[in-house]
């Protein structure tokens, strides 16, 4: 299952906390995370790596980043 997390406009640590909360439920294997600062993109990516996940794609549109994160199997 894919879960979407909209963390736009939120400053750290909120985006990371939202991702870590979402990653707890084992049925979700893919996460689409929306953030709008580079710091949040870096922090969420770092948190993903630390939770056995991989950032497979980052789309940059205007001032926003769309991260695709997949749980490693």
């Amino acid at each position: 299952m894919t879960k979407t997390i909209d963390a736009r406009g939120l400053s750290c640590p909120q985006p990371v906390l939202m991702f870590l909360e979402a990653v707890k439920s084992p049925e979700d294997t893919q996460f689409e995370v929306l953030v709008d600062t580079e710091a949040s993109r870096e922090n969420v990516s770092r948190a993903a790596e630390s939770r056995n996940c991989r950032v497979t794609d980052i789309q940059e549109t205007g001032d926003e980043y769309h991260l695709t994160i997949v749980r490693k199997t």
Binding site: P13, V16, L17, L20, A39, E42, N43, R46, A47, S50
Partner: peptide, 19 residues
Amino acid sequence: SRFCTMGAFRDFVLFRQTH
């Protein structure tokens, strides 16, 4: 680098992140 002394301790306490 986003250097932050508060974030340093917060991230360690919240998610054991030592960056």
